[in-house]
Nucleic acid binder design. Structure first.
Length: 227
DNA sequence: GACCAGGCACATC
DNA sequence: GATGTGCATGGT
């Protein structure tokens, strides 16, 4: 991308950020007591509302299963029962257990050792795991490992498309690259920016799709949303 | 009661 | 490579 193109885009993204931040203040996203809990939540939230994920996470904690070794030692039925409220519970049980097995074999079950790995190699390993696609991998890399990757989700695509910053159908990697080349690679900024997108998406794209009261409404300048 | 949610893998063309 | 389908629960 040309330098003027990048700085224009960078300014547009920072304007989005400022409007959302002014509306919400710090989100502190992602919620989770430990990096492992964040990684599990990233798998459980696939195509699923976060409120349902919270129930499954609470179940795991109540059953003392929020640890890789505990999950691997548990009966599969027990894990499935705990994950049931988050939907797709058979698939998600398989995916969580596969992640635990890999984490155990590769890093002795320790998230801190995983996080010490170089970003690109680690991303490739995560993507090679069955059940971990780009968004889930990047959730884990950013929020559980503190790596400077930008997480793209359905809300990101919808909001940028709606405001004409990127085409609605832009592929995952292209949209990730757009953020990562336009913004300073600061983990705290990436975390908070994605958190603000999630909150804005939940509150306005879903609950109030007409954009009433949306912090980003001023950017539309009276034009209807594009989607 | 229909419709949707912060995905992903797999089959089919 | 693009497109369609299964996976499952809970909220609106």
């Amino acid at each position: 991308m040309s330098e003027p193109g990048r700085s224009r885009r960078s300014a547009a993204l920072l304007r989005l950020y400022d409007l959302m931040a002014a509306h919400y203040g710090p989100t502190g996203w992602w919620p989770g007591d430990t990096p492992f809990e964040v990684a599990v939540g990233a798998i459980l939230t696939q195509n699923t509302a976060w409120t349902n994920v919270e129930k499954a996470i609470a179940n795991l904690k109540a059953a003392r299963l929020m640890a890789p070794a505990a999950l691997l030692a548990a009966n599969r039925d027990t894990v499935e029962a705990a994950l049931r409220p988050s939907g797709y519970f058979r698939q998600k049980t398989e995916r969580v257990l596969l992640f635990c097995r890999w984490l155990g074999e590769r890093f002795g079950g320790r998230m801190d050792r995983m996080a010490a790995e170089p970003l690109e190699a680690l991303r490739a390993e995560l993507l090679a795991l069955k059940g971990i696609g780009p968004e889930t991998a990047d959730d884990i890399l950013l929020y559980a490992c503190g790596k400077p990757v930008f997480v793209v989700d359905a809300y990101t695509r919808r909001i940028l498309g709606r405001h004409g910053i990127a085409p609605q159908e832009i592929p995952y990697e292209a949209l990730r690259a757009l953020f990562e080349t336009s913004l300073a690679p600061e983990v705290a900024l990436f975390k908070e920016f994605h958190g603000l997108i999630v909150w804005t998406g939940k509150d306005f794209c879903r609950a109030r799709p007409q954009c009433d009261g949306c912090p980003l409404a001023p950017l539309l300048r009276g034009k209807p949303p594009k989607d």
